[in-house]
Design a protein around this nucleic acid. Structure first.
Length: 579
DNA sequence: TCTATATCACCC
DNA sequence: AAACGGGTGATATAGA
């Protein structure tokens, strides 16, 4: 399937209008209308609500020899799933392809349908009319005869737009790879439909006492400082306190007090009495407002925003997505009765990718050892052959920090600060990395040169970024690791969802899946096998392992980094209730 | 008093 | 110019 004429059963341009069920965010969509146009024949079909809800399958071919074309197809696929229709075998998403085509160039009018049309000099309807029609859809029914006509007409204009956009974009497309990205959009839709199960009772409880919890936190600590007014930390009051205590505090270039947690951390070392305020500020910052969107069935759903970032990662809203806010809130994640949740994440994904793509044998050997950080320390001759995680804890931590630093292009000063060591030590660690992994560094240098000379970089399956003007060399060097990591997870999500495994959400290098308690071990093994296979697809012969964290009903999910805060919140809720 | 910007913290 | 990659977004303060 390399050209449109290969699709002998038709090329179908489609668009749905829809709104969340009951108008509530977090619910799956309720399709309102559908327009389908066959590209070669020009035959157009319009379907209002009942016409689609009464059907058990799509009103056009979705088989191997047909192509379904849409703009932001996960939305269309959401409607398919809601209607119980079999998803199209082949999906071409012009949004995804437009993102890929223009990635790194920030097109003038954005990457929505209007932006893409303008980019190619094609005619468009007005943004105002688009907004008006979207609002009319979101308003919910019943819709008058005239409104129904208006919505169908509008829906048809989007399909007509696809009819112009497809031939304009066709010469730029790598169709097999585009279809693979379309396959991911189907997986996205499956994940958006599944969502993450939430303990809604506890969510309500926490929301109810949210303000009072903050008040209680402040009351417990700020009494002896008096820097808070209500729930806000006042810089002025902090300045007064510092003056009174005779503490010289770091300032920003602008003259304002530097109020990062890191500054608080460093100052707390010198002046222990500022430590409690630091604790309080960090606890409060973990309690920033969030708006986790939960459907009527108690599952967190939101747009996953696939291909939104330059490296091709998903970029869901941090406030709507349960994996966005501070990790303690993940305690709200709870499997339904009879099920287990498994968080499966790739082990040291970026290190493994760097090893495989650069072809650095020592790096690959370190990855295969199962503990790349310790292996690096051994290879560098910094610890003896038989060293273990327990016997050389400090060294391992430093070599780990060094590995992560290299992945982000961190310099010696930042690394030194990170590991709380002299700059000379950081310099030494970075030098050891360069000496130990020479092949990796040559590849990394070449990546940067290539990006600047050719003006672009790409992943194994063709997600591209264009490089223009001044560029951040660290971004260029990082792109293959993060971009291929994103690609790997996309393929994993395709494999998992197509195998019928319920994927609640993707989390950059991890997925949360929901498995029945019965047959749990087999389910996990299957999922991990598919993830391994996905890594091999991106990295050739080299495969990455994964770690699985299991939570079974009636336990709740708990990230160990969030345990203390979770306990604090629970304690304060109890305290408030007891009053 | 409202809005824009700067700053900061969270996630992987 | 900064020197930690990719993000979202809340919040405090400056400015209109």
């Amino acid at each position: 399937m390399n050209q449109l004429s290969d699709f002998t059963d038709g090329v179908f341009l489609i668009d749905f209008e829809f709104r969340p069920e009951n108008g509530r965010e977090g619910n799956t969509p309720e399709p309102v209308c559908l327009v389908v146009k066959e590209f070669l024949s020009g035959v157009t079909s319009r379907y209002w609500k009942d016409d689609i809800h009464s059907r058990s399958s799509a009103p056009f071919s979705v088989g191997r020899k047909a192509l379904c074309v849409a703009y932001y197809s996960s939305a269309e696929m959401d409607c398919f799933l809601k209607l119980g229709w079999q998803l199209p075998e082949n999906v071409l998403d012009l949004y995804v392809e437009f993102r890929c085509l223009t990635n790194g160039t920030s097109p003038q009018n954005g990457a929505n349908l209007l932006g893409a049309l303008l980019y190619f000099g094609l005619p468009t309807i007005s943004a105002q009319h688009k907004d008006a029609m979207r609002d009319l859809t979101l308003r919910g029914g019943p819709w008058s005869q005239q409104e129904q006509l208006d919505l169908l007409d509008y829906c048809e204009t989007d399909v007509s737009a696809l009819e112009l956009l497809l031939p304009a974009m066709l010469p730029t497309l790598d169709l097999p790879r585009a279809l693979m990205r379309g396959r991911y959009m189907k997986a996205v839709s499956h994940m958006q439909a599944t969502g993450t199960p939430i303990d809604t009772q506890m969510q309500l409880e926490i929301a109810t006492y949210w303000d009072q919890i903050q008040d209680a936190l402040i009351e417990e600590i700020d009494a002896s400082y008096g820097v808070f007014e209500g729930r806000t930390f006042k810089t002025k009051n902090w300045a007064d306190y510092l003056q009174k205590e005779g503490i010289a505090w770091p300032r920003l270039a602008t003259g304002r007090l530097e109020l990062t947690d890191d500054t608080f951390k460093q100052m707390a070392r010198i002046y222990p009495k500022v430590a409690p305020i630091r604790e309080l500020r960090s606890a409060l910052s973990e309690m920033r407002l969030s708006n986790i969107t939960v459907g009527d069935d108690g599952r967190n759903r939101c747009l996953l925003s696939p291909f939104a970032s330059k490296t091709g990662r998903n970029q869901p809203s941090n406030s709507r997505f349960i994996y966005g806010p501070s990790v303690w809130l993940r305690g709200l994640i709870k499997p339904p009765k009879g099920f287990c949740l498994v968080y499966v994440d790739y082990s040291q994904q970026e290190f493994g990718i760097a090893a495989a793509l650069s072809g650095d044998e020592k790096m690959m050997e370190a990855y295969r050892s199962g503990d790349p950080y310790l292996a690096f320390a051994i290879q560098a001759g910094a610890v003896p052959q038989g060293a273990t995680k327990q016997s050389h804890k400090v060294e391992r931590e430093q070599f780990k920090a060094c590995v992560l630093a290299v992945q982000y292009g961190m310099g010696e000063i930042s690394l030194a600060q990170r590991i709380n060591q002299p700059v000379a030590r950081a310099r030494q660690l970075l030098a050891l990395h360069r000496q130990t992994y020479r092949t990796f560094w040559a590849w990394s240098d070449a990546t940067q040169d290539e990006a600047i000379l050719n003006g672009k970089l790409w992943t194994t399956f063709g997600w591209e970024i264009r490089v223009k003007g001044q560029v951040n060399a660290r971004s260029l060097r990082n792109f293959p690791m993060q971009g291929n990591g994103a690609e790997m997870l996309r393929i994993a999500c395709i494999f998992l969802t197509e195998a019928g495994i319920r994927v609640c959400a993707p989390v950059h290098d991890a997925v949360l899946i929901e498995l029945p308690l019965v047959g749990l071990d087999e389910g996990i093994a299957k999922a991990q096998g598919l993830m391994r296979q996905a890594s091999g697809a991106v990295l050739g012969d080299f495969e990455l392992g994964s770690d699985a964290k299991i939570v079974c009903y009636p336990d709740r999910y708990m990230d160990e980094r969030g345990q203390v805060m979770w306990d604090t919140v629970m304690r304060l809720i109890q305290k408030i209730k007891d009053q």
